[in-house]
Design a protein around this nucleic acid. Structure first.
Lengths: 191, 191
DNA sequence: AAGTAACCATACCGGTCGGTATACTCGCAG
DNA sequence: CTGCGAGTATACCGACCGGTATGGTTACTT
């Protein structure tokens, strides 16, 4: 009957962990469920018992990725981020650079969007929500910094942020994040 | 021996045309060479005689896409674009919206990057060059508009432009291009 | 003692993948 | 008239795709 199934078991977690690496590094379509099961030291049977379908596993991967990024960002801000002001906004870019740590694959959500052509894929909603949360984070940080019209400026900062990721990864422009930080300073008005 | 082969034949052009639609609309990995050959009204044999491999066909697709976009932009600017000033920069965004015309698949180059995981894919160079040409176009338009420091500002405008595309397609933010135009006005300084 | 959730192992399904092989027809330039 | 480039048609290859089936083994509950 399959039912909804609970993926939160030892094998389920391992599958999700392995899928997280493989989907991101090689692309969703390029990675088969056989490989994931093998790399996770389990079987396809268990994978399907936990997640029901590849599409559902993909959606779980995207949700987990969002979760992990937000945890990473929070920890980064706590440990290394400035305490207040515009620098706190710029620190998100620092965190993003550290988050990728050498990989040139870029934003997992943008990449996933390219492969989820069917409009009704369960992962699509995760992507939309993720980008909106990202934008919301910038708005919140600007508001905390006491910037007037944080809503409008947050949207602009977010666009620069997204554009920098594209330019770094697709365009191979190593200086993209430095340019982005300068652009954000210019947009917000230096303080 | 295959050799380099000349794809510029009736069948070759038809294959490239069909591949252009299918690769963009469904994704590169999701479209097989069998389907392309069939839709082009030819055979896989001819496809391989003309292009040699799927990878080479993909690279040709990306090159052709860049070529077509630049033709489209030039024609758009000639027919509908303003004659001078900052409005000419903003018109690139208008052209981009028209270029997509309803499709929510977003930037073909960004999507292709997500699927070309192998670092040595012949298409990667096309992507890098495409983004650099795009940036160069903004720099050139700003310089023509008499804006000082067109190099720096062009880079910033380009980041906003790329970010808007991501936010519209991945984030489903319908207002992204309007926000981008406002952001660009703010960056360049209204004039 | 019975039930159940979680797991492993293996085999199978129809279909598609990129790519190659063989053999033929047509039109054109030397 | 000959050779060649471009095209057609069909068949084949091993590998992999997502997904299902069968069967058996633990370990914890009730």
């Amino acid at each position: 009957m399959a039912r909804t199934a609970n993926p939160d078991t030892p094998a389920g977690r391992k599958i999700l962990e392995v899928a997280g690496v493989l989907f991101y590094e090689r692309g969703i379509g390029a990675v088969g469920v056989d490989l994931i099961a093998e790399q996770a030291g389990t079987t396809k049977k268990t994978l399907y018992d936990r997640f029901g379908s590849k599409d559902a596993l993909v959606a779980a991967y995207l949700e987990r990725r969002e979760e992990r990024w937000e945890e990473f960002l929070e920890e980064w801000m706590r440990a290394r981020g400035p305490k207040s002001g515009l620098d706190r906004v710029l620190a998100v870019l620092d965190a993003e650079e550290a988050w990728w740590a050498g990989s040139r694959r870029g934003c997992a959500f943008v990449n996933a969007h390219a492969e989820l052509s069917e409009g009704d894929h369960p992962g699509r909603a995760v992507l939309r929500e993720g980008k909106r949360r990202s934008r919301g984070k910038f708005v919140a940080l600007l508001a905390e910094a006491g910037v007037p019209d944080a809503e409008t400026l947050g949207a602009r900062v977010h666009m620069v942020y997204e554009g920098a990721m594209v330019n770094l990864t697709v365009g191979g422009m190593a200086e993209a994040f430095d340019e982005a930080r300068e652009a954000i300073r210019a947009l917000v008005g230096e303080g």
